[in-house]
Nucleic acid binder design. Structure first.
Lengths: 194, 194
DNA sequence: CCCTCAAATTGACCTATGGTAAGAAATGCG
DNA sequence: CGCATTTCTTACCATAGGTCAATTTGAGGG
């Protein structure tokens, strides 16, 4: 086992029970990769071919529309990130994934990941568990977008990702929340006072 | 095999390749259930314990907030529906699932579904595939909620679920789109004219 | 066939958020 | 340290969508 994979190992063990030797074999397929701040892990019109597990650092996934960035997800330590649509369908992505900090990650290719899933019941179950959890958090997000106003979404974001508020520039949090930086600035002013 | 399960069989075969005898065995665990219009498949504060496959009819999943309905999903023929969060976590749901038409469905309990998943690699893969697809469509929805205005979301809804526009009252489509019935009415007026 | 009730429309008005622009503050780099 | 660039704030006005109330439309039951 390589040193970089211990966080990943812990994370996977937290998801489902996997026999030690299976787990060790899986970890061999993850390759350490490093991205400097502003580097891209994925760019529009590529086919997403790597799933990343973030060991340290921070990345954002976003798409462009009329030159405007719409952030879909932040991924930090112990998060996975990929464009699932492109990764699974082998079609071109419409997303970018970009490092917001110098980032150390472990990458696994589509073919290798698939091979792992197909090679063992435990891995397939692990894949299902990851997909289940993604779906649940995506339901939360889409419900919140129709149910809550921007102030509530910001308050929730601070509660759910407390570390990120200091690490992500405000205009990107605004983008993630679906509002303008100006609106977020006003919301923050309101919260400090009455 | 029971008659009601042929649609489900077709649907499952479309997702992943499953040996015929495994598939036949699985179908035995699905029980036909019927709901009259307005009946509830699931109510707030229950633990979601059944996953439904809709053979015919139409249901909505929604939650209440200050007496207002926020519709999260419509499920019609050949759709699955469940509150994934509650179903997987065994915690109380905050959703309702209610029939909008007389509905014939196939239900499988959490325990039986889990047993099927655990019993065979093919079923686990099928479960993963379903979860993957849910996640992808949820990503689409949440992206659209931050990226598109109400007019675009309505146009997309008509394109993606063309049958539903005639079967679902307008005020429910509005709720699904995250706007008021009045706004949807104005949007429709605009679309007819300029 | 009418009556009733729910749904849809419309109009007037209101509020949250967006757009633009400018300046202030913070950050990063030579 | 100090300049340059990015980010944040503020102010002003514009707009999408919300609220409320009044009609109108439409569907189902008696």
């Amino acid at each position: 086992m390589i040193a970089e994979s211990s966080q990943l190992e812990t994370r996977l063990k937290g998801l489902v029970r996997v026999p030690e030797d299976d787990l060790a074999r899986a970890l061999l397929f993850f390759t350490p990769v490093f991205f400097k701040k502003t580097e891209y892990l994925l760019s529009q019109d590529q086919v997403s071919n790597q799933l990343y597990f973030i060991n340290s650092g921070l990345v954002k996934s976003y798409l462009l529309q009329d030159g405007k960035e719409h952030i879909r997800q932040f991924a930090a330590e112990n998060d996975f990130i990929v464009d699932l649509q492109s990764f699974l369908s082998r079609q071109k992505t419409s997303f970018f994934i970009q490092a917001l900090e110098d980032t150390a990650a472990l990458a696994i290719s589509f073919d290798n990941l698939n091979m792992l899933f197909e090679s063992s019941f435990h891995f397939m179950k692990l894949g299902k568990t990851l997909a289940d959890q993604s779906a649940i958090s995506l339901i939360r997000r889409s419900v919140s977008l129709v149910k809550d106003d921007a102030k509530k979404r910001y308050a929730d974001f601070m509660k759910e990702r407390p570390g990120l508020v200091q690490r992500v520039p405000q205009f990107m949090i605004a983008s993630y929340l679906g509002i303008t930086p100006e609106s977020l600035s006003r919301i923050r002013k309101e919260m400090v006072h009455g």
